[in-house]
Amino acid sequence: MSERVAVIAGGAKGIGRAVGLDLAERGWSVALCYRTSEKEGSETAEAIRKKGARALSVRADVSDPKAAEAFVKQVEGEWGRIDALINAAGPYHRVNLLEETIEGWHAMFDHNLHPLFYLSRLVAPGMRERRWGRIVSFSMANADQMIGQPQITGHYIAKVGVLILTRSLAKLLAPHGITVNAISPGFIRSGSAPESEMAGMIKNIPAGYVGELSDAVSVARFLLSDEARYVTGGNIHLSGGWGV
Rank of each mutant, 00 (worst) to 15 (best):
G27M: 09
G27F: 09
G27N: 11
W28P: 01
W28H: 05
W28T: 05
W28V: 04
W28Q: 03
W28G: 02
S29R: 15
V30N: 04
V30Y: 07
V30D: 07
V30W: 09
V30C: 06
V30H: 09
A31P: 07
A31N: 11
L32V: 15
L32N: 04
L32H: 06
L32M: 13
L32W: 08
L32A: 08
L32T: 12
C33T: 12
R35C: 13
R35D: 13
R35W: 11
R35A: 15
T36M: 12
T36G: 13
T36P: 08
S37W: 01
S37N: 06
E38T: 15
E38H: 13
E38P: 11
K39D: 14
K39P: 02
K39S: 14
K39H: 13
E40S: 12
E40W: 01
G41Y: 08
G41R: 08
S42W: 07
S42C: 05
S42L: 14
E43M: 04
E43V: 03
T44R: 04
T44D: 08
A45Q: 02
A45V: 02
E46F: 04
E46Q: 13
A47K: 10
A47N: 08
I48R: 01
R49G: 02
K50G: 14
K50N: 14
K50E: 14
K51S: 07
K51I: 08
G52R: 01
G52N: 00
A53I: 12
R54Y: 06
A55I: 01
A55P: 00
A55S: 06
L56R: 11
L56G: 05
L56A: 10
L56V: 03
S57K: 01
S57Y: 05
